[in-house]
């Protein structure tokens, strides 16, 4: 089941609704059925007012249950792309298709509400999702367990460390029960040790829940450590210029030689992208 957000000014083949269970575009000759948590962008451009395009004809297919990392320098429109998928903004041209349940979005700062406890933040997310009051406490406990914060529900936001806050924010996003999870540099503000631990946690939770993850970062190693696919975006305007596939079947660590080797290759491309702007 897919819902479509179509911009009013989209002059191209603008069918306002896409039929449910629409067949996916044939990729590599093997047809797939779009289900659950697929995200599809077609010819998406975004400009603010009369300003230059932030995103320029972006096409993107994210398979259900996959983990995609978007990588790029400042001004590549990574965050704008997530806002479009989350439905916070509309594309100037093109179509964005997301599952009918929509997408959960996790921000760089924890963005927890400071007047609530950790459990209160989770409870509010469930309440806004429409979960009945009776069922919420058990669900809050389950979410806290999921991010290994059992017993920390009564803590106020300011009593939590940066890593704990991001885990609560992750639990809150998971509590929305959307099949797509968008993450906007969620670990950028954390120290290296905590970030390593959260990488493992996110990987574990991704495998347990089968959620589709679109993860935006400017950290190449993080992208290679986490993603099944790493997409490199150019800046001003933002376009997807290259893609790498990563074998995510085994266990990866950020220190692995294979991760380092691919990171070096991607970093070279990223630097080349940045250099183009000096001319």
């Amino acid at each position: 089941m897919t819902a479509t957000r179509t911009s009013t000014s989209a002059g191209t083949e603008g069918a306002p609704h896409v039929a449910s269970a629409a067949p996916a575009p044939t990729s590599g000759g093997a047809p797939q059925v779009v289900s659950g948590g697929a995200v599809r962008l077609r010819g998406v451009s975004k400009a603010y007012g009369r300003g230059p395009a932030v995103l320029d004809t972006v096409d993107l297919d994210v398979a259900p249950g996959s983990f995609v990392c978007l990588l790029g320098a400042s001004g590549c429109g990574k965050s704008t792309l997530l806002s479009l998928v989350a439905g916070l903004e509309r594309p100037t041209v093109g179509t964005v298709e997301v599952p009918s349940s929509g997408a959960a979005l996790m921000f760089q700062e924890s963005a927890l509400f400071p007047w609530l406890t950790a459990a209160g933040n989770l409870d509010l997310a469930l309440k806004l999702r429409g979960v009945p009051r009776r069922e919420r406490p058990a669900e809050v406990e389950r979410l806290l367990d999921l991010v290994r914060l059992t017993g920390a529900g009564g803590k106020r936001v300011h009593e939590l460390s940066g890593g704990m806050r991001q885990r609560v924010a992750l639990a809150r996003a998971l509590g929305q029960q959307r099949s797509v999870l968008l993450m906007d540099e969620p670990f950028a503000a954390l120290d290296a040790i905590t970030r390593d631990v959260l990488h493992s946690e996110l990987e574990r939770i991704w495998r347990e829940t089968g959620t589709t993850v679109v993860f935006v970062t400017h950290n190449v190693r993080e992208a290679v450590r986490l993603g099944e696919r790493v997409l490199l975006m150019s800046s001003r305007p933002g376009r997807i210029v290259r893609e790498w596939a990563v074998d995510a079947s085994g266990s990866r660590r950020i220190e692995d030689a294979a991760v380092a080797a691919l990171s070096i290759e991607i970093t070279d491309h990223l630097r080349e992208e940045i250099r183009r702007h000096a001319r």
Binding site: L60, R242, A248
Partner: peptide, 22 residues
């Protein structure tokens, strides 16, 4: 899980990293 190439990539070669599975 094999990654499907996105339609937006312009002639990108796909490189796979073999993760250590020990």
């Amino acid at each position: 899980m094999p990654a499907e190439p996105s339609a937006g990539t312009s002639g990108a070669g796909s490189t796979a990293v073999a993760a250590t599975s020990d």
